[in-house]
Amino acid sequence: MSLKAVVMAGGKGTRLRPITYSIPKPLVPIAGKPCVSYLMDSFYDAGIKDAIVTTGYKFESLINGIIEAKKPDQNVLFSVEREPAGTAGSVKLISNFIDDTIVVGSGDILYDFDIKSIIDFHKKKNASVTIVLTRVDDPSQFGIVDLKDDVITRFLEKPAAGEAFSNIVNAGIYVIEPEVLKYIDKIPFDFAKELFPRLMRHGTPIYGYLGNGTWLDTGRPNDLIKGNQIMVNKYGFKYDSKNITGKNIIKTTSDLSDDIIDSSYIGTNLQIGKNTVIKGSAIYNGVVLGNNVHIEDSIIMDASRIMDNTVIKKSVIMRNCVIGEDSEIIESVISPDLDLHGKSRVYNVSLASKIITDEQV
Protein backbone atom coordinates (compact mmCIF):
# COMPACT_ATOMS: atom_id res chain seq x y z
CA MET A 1 0.00 0.00 0.00
CA SER A 2 1.28 3.46 -0.85
CA LEU A 3 0.00 6.99 -0.97
CA LYS A 4 -0.50 8.11 -4.57
CA ALA A 5 -1.09 11.35 -6.42
CA VAL A 6 -3.74 11.78 -9.10
CA VAL A 7 -3.33 14.58 -11.64
CA MET A 8 -6.47 15.52 -13.56
CA ALA A 9 -5.31 16.73 -16.97
CA GLY A 10 -8.08 15.98 -19.42
CA GLY A 11 -9.64 19.39 -20.09
CA LYS A 12 -9.54 21.31 -23.38
CA GLY A 13 -8.61 24.66 -21.83
CA THR A 14 -11.23 26.50 -23.89
CA ARG A 15 -10.65 29.87 -22.18
CA LEU A 16 -7.02 29.78 -23.33
CA ARG A 17 -7.79 29.32 -27.02
CA PRO A 18 -6.09 29.72 -29.43
CA ILE A 19 -3.09 28.76 -27.24
CA THR A 20 -4.60 25.38 -26.37
CA TYR A 21 -5.37 24.52 -29.98
CA SER A 22 -1.73 23.49 -30.27
CA ILE A 23 -0.68 22.63 -26.71
CA PRO A 24 -2.57 21.00 -23.81
CA LYS A 25 -3.17 23.53 -21.05
CA PRO A 26 -1.17 21.57 -18.40
CA LEU A 27 1.91 21.83 -20.65
CA VAL A 28 1.71 25.59 -21.20
CA PRO A 29 5.05 26.88 -19.87
CA ILE A 30 5.31 29.10 -16.81
CA ALA A 31 8.78 30.43 -15.93
CA GLY A 32 10.46 27.68 -17.90
CA LYS A 33 8.40 24.70 -16.70
CA PRO A 34 5.09 23.19 -17.81
CA CYS A 35 2.28 24.33 -15.53
CA VAL A 36 1.64 20.74 -14.39
CA SER A 37 5.26 20.33 -13.29
CA TYR A 38 4.76 22.63 -10.31
CA LEU A 39 2.01 20.34 -9.00
CA MET A 40 3.97 17.17 -9.69
CA ASP A 41 7.06 18.65 -8.04
CA SER A 42 4.95 19.55 -4.99
CA PHE A 43 3.81 15.92 -4.77
CA TYR A 44 7.39 14.71 -5.17
CA ASP A 45 8.68 17.07 -2.46
CA ALA A 46 6.06 15.59 -0.12
CA GLY A 47 7.52 12.12 -0.74
CA ILE A 48 4.86 10.98 -3.22
CA LYS A 49 6.67 9.32 -6.11
CA ASP A 50 3.73 7.45 -7.65
CA ALA A 51 1.30 9.46 -9.77
CA ILE A 52 -1.61 8.66 -12.07
CA VAL A 53 -2.45 11.23 -14.73
CA THR A 54 -5.97 11.23 -16.17
CA THR A 55 -6.14 12.73 -19.64
CA GLY A 56 -8.14 12.94 -22.84
CA TYR A 57 -7.57 16.06 -24.95
CA LYS A 58 -4.29 15.90 -26.92
CA PHE A 59 -3.26 12.98 -24.73
CA GLU A 60 -0.24 11.98 -26.82
CA SER A 61 1.34 15.42 -26.47
CA LEU A 62 0.47 15.49 -22.77
CA ILE A 63 1.98 12.06 -22.09
CA ASN A 64 5.21 12.93 -23.92
CA GLY A 65 5.46 16.28 -22.13
CA ILE A 66 4.98 14.82 -18.67
CA ILE A 67 7.42 11.98 -19.28
CA GLU A 68 10.01 14.53 -20.36
CA ALA A 69 9.39 16.81 -17.37
CA LYS A 70 9.01 14.31 -14.51
CA LYS A 71 11.72 13.40 -12.03
CA PRO A 72 13.78 10.32 -13.00
CA ASP A 73 12.47 8.29 -10.04
CA GLN A 74 8.89 9.51 -10.33
CA ASN A 75 6.55 6.71 -11.46
CA VAL A 76 3.67 7.86 -13.68
CA LEU A 77 0.72 5.91 -15.07
CA PHE A 78 -1.69 7.43 -17.59
CA SER A 79 -5.44 6.91 -17.87
CA VAL A 80 -6.78 8.04 -21.25
CA GLU A 81 -10.49 8.89 -21.36
CA ARG A 82 -12.18 8.54 -24.73
CA GLU A 83 -15.15 10.47 -23.35
CA PRO A 84 -15.00 13.05 -20.51
CA ALA A 85 -15.59 11.32 -17.18
CA GLY A 86 -15.80 14.39 -14.96
CA THR A 87 -13.41 15.21 -12.14
CA ALA A 88 -14.61 12.50 -9.74
CA GLY A 89 -15.44 10.09 -12.56
CA SER A 90 -11.85 10.20 -13.80
CA VAL A 91 -10.68 9.04 -10.37
CA LYS A 92 -13.36 6.33 -10.23
CA LEU A 93 -12.04 4.89 -13.49
CA ILE A 94 -8.65 4.25 -11.89
CA SER A 95 -9.98 2.98 -8.56
CA ASN A 96 -8.42 -0.47 -9.13
CA PHE A 97 -5.02 1.20 -8.71
CA ILE A 98 -5.98 2.96 -5.46
CA ASP A 99 -5.41 1.12 -2.18
CA ASP A 100 -4.51 3.97 0.16
CA THR A 101 -4.89 7.73 0.62
CA ILE A 102 -4.75 9.72 -2.62
CA VAL A 103 -4.01 13.38 -3.24
CA VAL A 104 -5.86 14.74 -6.27
CA GLY A 105 -5.01 17.95 -8.11
CA SER A 106 -5.80 19.72 -11.38
CA GLY A 107 -2.92 19.77 -13.84
CA ASP A 108 -4.01 23.03 -15.44
CA ILE A 109 -3.90 25.18 -12.28
CA LEU A 110 -0.63 26.67 -11.04
CA TYR A 111 0.05 25.13 -7.63
CA ASP A 112 3.15 25.41 -5.54
CA PHE A 113 1.84 24.14 -2.21
CA ASP A 114 3.34 22.40 0.80
CA ILE A 115 1.56 19.09 0.19
CA LYS A 116 3.08 17.35 3.22
CA SER A 117 1.42 19.79 5.64
CA ILE A 118 -1.94 19.13 3.94
CA ILE A 119 -1.54 15.36 4.31
CA ASP A 120 -0.48 15.75 7.95
CA PHE A 121 -3.62 17.81 8.62
CA HIS A 122 -5.79 15.19 6.90
CA LYS A 123 -4.30 12.37 8.97
CA LYS A 124 -4.53 14.34 12.22
CA LYS A 125 -8.25 14.94 11.62
CA ASN A 126 -8.76 11.29 10.65
CA ALA A 127 -10.64 12.74 7.70
CA SER A 128 -12.26 10.95 4.78
CA VAL A 129 -11.94 14.04 2.60
CA THR A 130 -9.90 17.22 2.95
CA ILE A 131 -10.30 20.06 0.47
CA VAL A 132 -7.48 22.54 0.08
CA LEU A 133 -8.75 26.12 0.16
CA THR A 134 -7.38 29.51 -0.75
CA ARG A 135 -8.52 33.13 -0.48
CA VAL A 136 -9.23 35.25 -3.54
CA ASP A 137 -10.21 38.87 -4.13
CA ASP A 138 -13.04 38.00 -6.54
CA PRO A 139 -14.81 34.69 -5.77
CA SER A 140 -17.40 34.97 -8.55
CA GLN A 141 -15.58 32.50 -10.82
CA PHE A 142 -14.95 29.84 -8.20
CA GLY A 143 -16.67 27.51 -5.76
CA ILE A 144 -16.83 29.23 -2.36
CA VAL A 145 -17.16 27.54 1.03
CA ASP A 146 -18.22 28.29 4.58
CA LEU A 147 -15.67 26.96 7.07
CA LYS A 148 -16.28 26.37 10.79
CA ASP A 149 -13.76 24.66 13.06
CA ASP A 150 -11.94 23.28 9.99
CA VAL A 151 -15.15 21.67 8.67
CA ILE A 152 -16.87 22.86 5.50
CA THR A 153 -20.53 23.60 6.21
CA ARG A 154 -21.73 24.65 2.74
CA PHE A 155 -20.67 25.16 -0.87
CA LEU A 156 -21.76 27.57 -3.59
CA GLU A 157 -20.45 27.36 -7.15
CA LYS A 158 -19.66 30.68 -8.88
CA PRO A 159 -21.80 33.00 -6.75
CA ALA A 160 -23.66 35.80 -8.49
CA ALA A 161 -23.35 39.40 -7.34
CA GLY A 162 -24.61 39.65 -3.77
CA GLU A 163 -24.58 35.88 -3.19
CA ALA A 164 -20.99 35.48 -2.02
CA PHE A 165 -20.83 34.66 1.69
CA SER A 166 -17.06 34.05 1.68
CA ASN A 167 -13.87 34.73 -0.26
CA ILE A 168 -12.53 31.28 0.61
CA VAL A 169 -12.59 29.08 -2.49
CA ASN A 170 -11.99 25.48 -3.45
CA ALA A 171 -8.40 25.35 -4.71
CA GLY A 172 -8.91 22.03 -6.49
CA ILE A 173 -6.62 19.81 -4.41
CA TYR A 174 -8.26 16.98 -2.47
CA VAL A 175 -6.96 14.38 -0.03
CA ILE A 176 -9.29 11.39 -0.23
CA GLU A 177 -9.56 7.99 1.43
CA PRO A 178 -10.41 5.05 -0.88
CA GLU A 179 -13.78 4.29 0.74
CA VAL A 180 -15.14 7.63 -0.50
CA LEU A 181 -15.01 6.39 -4.08
CA LYS A 182 -18.02 4.11 -3.49
CA TYR A 183 -20.24 7.19 -3.62
CA ILE A 184 -19.27 7.75 -7.26
CA ASP A 185 -21.91 5.61 -8.93
CA LYS A 186 -21.99 6.91 -12.49
CA ILE A 187 -19.85 8.44 -15.21
CA PRO A 188 -19.45 11.38 -15.68
CA PHE A 189 -19.37 12.57 -12.06
CA ASP A 190 -18.10 15.80 -10.52
CA PHE A 191 -16.35 16.36 -7.20
CA ALA A 192 -17.70 19.80 -6.28
CA LYS A 193 -21.18 19.56 -7.79
CA GLU A 194 -22.03 15.95 -6.96
CA LEU A 195 -19.66 14.00 -4.72
CA PHE A 196 -19.08 16.53 -1.95
CA PRO A 197 -22.78 17.44 -1.54
CA ARG A 198 -23.61 13.72 -1.47
CA LEU A 199 -21.04 13.11 1.28
CA MET A 200 -22.48 15.98 3.33
CA ARG A 201 -25.99 14.53 2.98
CA HIS A 202 -24.64 11.23 4.31
CA GLY A 203 -23.13 13.02 7.31
CA THR A 204 -19.50 12.61 6.27
CA PRO A 205 -17.54 15.65 7.48
CA ILE A 206 -15.49 17.39 4.80
CA TYR A 207 -12.48 19.19 6.19
CA GLY A 208 -10.99 22.35 4.76
CA TYR A 209 -7.34 23.37 4.86
CA LEU A 210 -6.12 26.82 3.86
CA GLY A 211 -3.19 26.08 1.57
CA ASN A 212 0.22 27.58 2.08
CA GLY A 213 1.87 28.54 -1.20
CA THR A 214 1.20 29.78 -4.70
CA TRP A 215 -2.17 29.21 -6.37
CA LEU A 216 -3.38 30.68 -9.65
CA ASP A 217 -6.10 29.68 -12.08
CA THR A 218 -4.26 30.11 -15.39
CA GLY A 219 -7.47 30.27 -17.39
CA ARG A 220 -6.68 33.27 -19.59
CA PRO A 221 -3.58 34.58 -21.39
CA ASN A 222 -3.06 37.40 -18.89
CA ASP A 223 -3.10 34.77 -16.10
CA LEU A 224 -0.19 32.99 -17.80
CA ILE A 225 1.74 36.24 -17.85
CA LYS A 226 0.92 36.83 -14.18
CA GLY A 227 1.90 33.26 -13.31
CA ASN A 228 5.24 33.70 -15.01
CA GLN A 229 5.91 36.85 -13.00
CA ILE A 230 4.91 35.19 -9.72
CA MET A 231 7.19 32.18 -10.23
CA VAL A 232 10.13 34.25 -11.48
CA ASN A 233 9.84 36.40 -8.37
CA LYS A 234 9.64 33.26 -6.21
CA TYR A 235 12.49 31.28 -7.76
CA GLY A 236 14.58 33.92 -9.54
CA PHE A 237 17.86 35.49 -8.52
CA LYS A 238 19.22 39.01 -8.30
CA TYR A 239 22.12 39.46 -10.70
CA ASP A 240 25.10 41.69 -10.07
CA SER A 241 24.62 43.83 -13.14
CA LYS A 242 23.44 47.39 -13.55
CA ASN A 243 21.22 46.49 -16.52
CA ILE A 244 19.64 43.37 -14.94
CA THR A 245 17.20 44.42 -12.24
CA GLY A 246 14.71 42.63 -9.99
CA LYS A 247 14.70 38.85 -9.76
CA ASN A 248 15.29 36.92 -12.98
CA ILE A 249 15.82 33.39 -14.25
CA ILE A 250 18.42 33.57 -17.00
CA LYS A 251 19.48 30.41 -18.85
CA THR A 252 21.15 31.91 -21.90
CA THR A 253 24.87 32.53 -22.29
CA SER A 254 24.23 35.36 -24.74
CA ASP A 255 25.77 38.75 -24.05
CA LEU A 256 23.09 40.88 -22.39
CA SER A 257 25.28 43.88 -21.62
CA ASP A 258 23.56 46.11 -24.19
CA ASP A 259 20.04 45.23 -23.02
CA ILE A 260 17.77 45.88 -20.05
CA ILE A 261 16.35 42.80 -18.32
CA ASP A 262 13.85 43.20 -15.47
CA SER A 263 11.95 40.48 -13.59
CA SER A 264 11.92 38.00 -16.48
CA TYR A 265 12.58 34.43 -17.56
CA ILE A 266 15.22 34.16 -20.31
CA GLY A 267 15.67 30.78 -22.02
CA THR A 268 18.54 29.20 -23.96
CA ASN A 269 20.05 29.55 -27.44
CA LEU A 270 18.84 33.10 -27.90
CA GLN A 271 19.97 35.80 -30.26
CA ILE A 272 19.38 39.23 -28.77
CA GLY A 273 20.21 42.47 -30.53
CA LYS A 274 21.31 45.76 -29.00
CA ASN A 275 19.22 48.11 -26.88
CA THR A 276 16.48 45.55 -26.29
CA VAL A 277 14.26 45.90 -23.20
CA ILE A 278 12.60 42.86 -21.56
CA LYS A 279 10.38 43.54 -18.53
CA GLY A 280 8.15 41.10 -16.63
CA SER A 281 8.25 38.66 -19.53
CA ALA A 282 9.25 35.13 -20.55
CA ILE A 283 11.48 34.62 -23.58
CA TYR A 284 11.81 30.94 -24.49
CA ASN A 285 14.41 28.83 -26.29
CA GLY A 286 15.72 29.69 -29.73
CA VAL A 287 14.04 33.09 -29.87
CA VAL A 288 15.61 35.81 -31.99
CA LEU A 289 15.15 39.41 -30.86
CA GLY A 290 16.30 42.26 -33.07
CA ASN A 291 17.70 45.67 -32.11
CA ASN A 292 15.62 48.18 -30.16
CA VAL A 293 12.91 45.63 -29.33
CA HIS A 294 10.69 46.36 -26.31
CA ILE A 295 8.91 43.41 -24.66
CA GLU A 296 6.83 44.01 -21.54
CA ASP A 297 4.47 41.75 -19.56
CA SER A 298 4.50 39.20 -22.38
CA ILE A 299 5.46 35.65 -23.35
CA ILE A 300 7.50 34.79 -26.45
CA MET A 301 7.53 31.04 -27.06
CA ASP A 302 10.19 28.87 -28.72
CA ALA A 303 11.82 29.77 -32.04
CA SER A 304 9.92 32.98 -32.68
CA ARG A 305 11.63 35.96 -34.30
CA ILE A 306 10.91 39.54 -33.31
CA MET A 307 12.41 42.02 -35.76
CA ASP A 308 13.96 45.45 -35.09
CA ASN A 309 12.08 48.32 -33.44
CA THR A 310 9.08 46.20 -32.47
CA VAL A 311 7.01 46.71 -29.28
CA ILE A 312 5.12 43.83 -27.63
CA LYS A 313 3.08 44.42 -24.47
CA LYS A 314 0.70 42.17 -22.50
CA SER A 315 0.70 39.59 -25.27
CA VAL A 316 1.52 35.94 -25.98
CA ILE A 317 3.51 35.13 -29.13
CA MET A 318 3.50 31.39 -29.71
CA ARG A 319 6.25 29.25 -31.24
CA ASN A 320 7.81 29.81 -34.63
CA CYS A 321 6.20 33.19 -35.33
CA VAL A 322 7.83 36.05 -37.18
CA ILE A 323 6.89 39.60 -36.18
CA GLY A 324 8.18 42.06 -38.76
CA GLU A 325 10.13 45.23 -38.01
CA ASP A 326 8.50 48.37 -36.59
CA SER A 327 5.43 46.41 -35.43
CA GLU A 328 3.29 46.83 -32.34
CA ILE A 329 1.44 43.98 -30.61
CA ILE A 330 -0.70 44.96 -27.59
CA GLU A 331 -2.90 42.67 -25.42
CA SER A 332 -3.08 40.00 -28.09
CA VAL A 333 -2.35 36.32 -28.75
CA ILE A 334 -0.51 35.25 -31.91
CA SER A 335 -0.90 31.56 -32.81
CA PRO A 336 2.03 29.36 -33.92
CA ASP A 337 3.71 29.71 -37.31
CA LEU A 338 2.26 33.12 -38.16
CA ASP A 339 4.33 35.59 -40.18
CA LEU A 340 3.32 39.23 -39.66
CA HIS A 341 4.65 41.82 -42.09
CA GLY A 342 6.61 44.83 -40.92
CA LYS A 343 4.71 47.80 -39.48
CA SER A 344 1.86 45.53 -38.31
CA ARG A 345 -0.46 46.91 -35.65
CA VAL A 346 -2.33 44.29 -33.59
CA TYR A 347 -4.47 45.33 -30.63
CA ASN A 348 -6.73 43.24 -28.37
CA VAL A 349 -7.20 40.27 -30.69
CA SER A 350 -6.29 36.60 -31.03
CA LEU A 351 -4.81 35.71 -34.41
CA ALA A 352 -5.03 32.03 -35.39
CA SER A 353 -3.05 30.47 -38.23
CA LYS A 354 -6.13 28.48 -39.26
CA ILE A 355 -9.70 27.90 -38.20
CA ILE A 356 -10.01 24.92 -35.87
CA THR A 357 -13.38 23.54 -34.83
CA ASP A 358 -14.28 21.47 -31.77
CA GLU A 359 -14.60 18.42 -34.02
CA GLN A 360 -10.92 18.73 -34.95
CA VAL A 361 -9.55 18.92 -31.40
Rank of each mutant, 00 (worst) to 15 (best):
E81A: 11
K247R: 14
F237M: 11
Q271F: 06
D297M: 10
I19P: 02
D146V: 07
N291Y: 07
N292P: 01
F97V: 08
V277E: 03
L338N: 15
N348H: 15
A160W: 00
S335W: 05
L216S: 12
S315R: 07
K343Y: 15
N170V: 04
S254P: 02
D258M: 09
L147I: 01
T268R: 15
K71S: 09
K33N: 12
G246Q: 09
K123P: 10
V6C: 08
I334L: 05
V7I: 14
I330P: 01
I63D: 05
P205Q: 06
S254R: 07
K354Q: 14
T253N: 14
K158M: 01
G10S: 05
L93T: 02
L181M: 07
V145T: 04
E157M: 00
R201Y: 06
G208M: 02
S140T: 05
D302K: 10
T134Y: 03
F165Q: 04
I187H: 11
V76S: 11
D240K: 14
L216P: 15
A85H: 07
P197F: 03
L147H: 00
E83K: 08
H202G: 03
K186R: 15
A46F: 05
N269W: 08
N228A: 06
I23Q: 12
I317Y: 06
Y57I: 00
F97D: 06
Y235P: 11
N96T: 09
K193M: 06
H122F: 02
L210T: 12
V287M: 07
P84M: 08
F165S: 03
V6I: 12
P197W: 04
M1K: 15
S2Y: 07
A9E: 02
G107L: 04
F191T: 01
